[in-house]
């Protein structure tokens, strides 16, 4: 549709304001990362009085940052992939099929979002321990436990959200495909899934960042070898000093892979339903 001048003006104003809100804290993080520690803890200055890149060098040896980065990438990537597959299947069953227990299942899954996360902490550790003792699969302290945990924590959200996305696609779309003899699931996977690609990407981003920033469970379920970034960042605060500048520098560096990933996927966020795909 044609964009009038006044529309463009409103858009410019709104986006400028939002950009300002977004940038201010990011700028504080950025500028702090280039200051010596004594300036970070002193009065705020818009520009560093003493510009230093020392934090970006020092941070790698203050904590094993590279190892934490690697751990986080493994855990979050795998948990995201698994959660998406599981959630897509479940959301399809919930949004498109009729079966006994459907509502109970969807409400059960939803109810997990109503219980404070912190309360899951000890029971989960307990259950992992029981699983290890009885069937010998170790889950405490290794990648597997954390991957399963993050995957599961994202599934309810992802399932419900995808259900919402699937629900907005008319049934006729896959019914048309089924006339060609494809199964319901096949039609769904081939026809509906590509249409809701933005939704799947969005849910994937959500799932990924869920694990990327999670601290509480990672702190209990990891060892020094499997520790993830968000937990590891806390180690910039030691008994002796708190290296705020290195912590900020590290946050920026670890956000780079995420930033690149965003740049790559953002296109898919806005390329779902080409005009006219649904009539």
């Amino acid at each position: 549709m044609r964009e009038t001048l006044s529309f463009k003006a409103v858009r410019a104003v709104v986006l400028t304001v939002i950009t300002g809100i977004v940038l201010l804290p990011l700028y504080v993080v950025l500028v702090s990362s280039f200051k010596p520690l004594r300036d970070v803890s002193g009065p705020f200055t818009w520009l560093p009085e003493t510009f230093t890149i020392e934090p970006y060098i020092q941070m790698w040896s203050t904590i094993p940052l590279a190892k934490y980065l690697f751990n986080s990438l493994i855990v979050t990537t795998l948990s995201t992939a698994l959660a998406l597959v599981i959630a897509v299947l479940a959301a399809f069953a919930l949004a498109r099929l009729r079966w006994r227990g459907q509502r109970s299942f969807s409400l059960l899954v939803l109810s997990t979002q109503m219980f404070p996360g912190i309360l899951f902490l000890l029971p989960l550790y307990l259950i992992f321990t029981q699983i290890q003792r009885t069937i010998g699969i170790q889950l405490n302290g290794n990648y597997a436990g954390l991957i399963i945990t993050y995957m599961t924590f994202s599934v309810p959200f992802a399932t419900w959200m995808l259900m919402g996305f699937f629900a907005s696609i008319p049934d006729e779309l896959e019914e048309a495909a089924m006339i060609d003899g494809t199964t319901r699931l096949g039609a769904f996977l081939r026809v509906v899934l590509p249409v809701v690609r933005p939704g799947i990407v969005a849910v994937g981003v959500f799932t990924f960042l869920n694990g990327w920033g999670e601290v509480l469970f990672a702190s209990v379920l990891t060892t020094s070898d499997t520790r993830t970034l968000a937990v590891g960042l806390q180690a910039f605060s030691s008994q002796v000093d708190v290296r705020w500048n290195e912590m900020m520098a590290a946050s920026i560096v670890i956000s780079l892979p995420v930033l690149i990933a965003f740049l790559l996927v953002q296109r898919h966020l806005v390329q779902g339903l080409a005009a006219g795909a649904v009539k």
């Binding site: 986006l15 950009t19 977004v22 960042l209 946050s251 930033l259 740049l263």
Partner: peptide, 16 residues
């Protein structure tokens, strides 16, 4: 802008 607006979300909440 799309990428920028997602950044607050990419920063660990702990750091934000």
């Amino acid at each position: 802008l799309r990428t920028l607006y997602l950044l607050p979300y990419a920063l660990p909440v702990f750091v934000s």
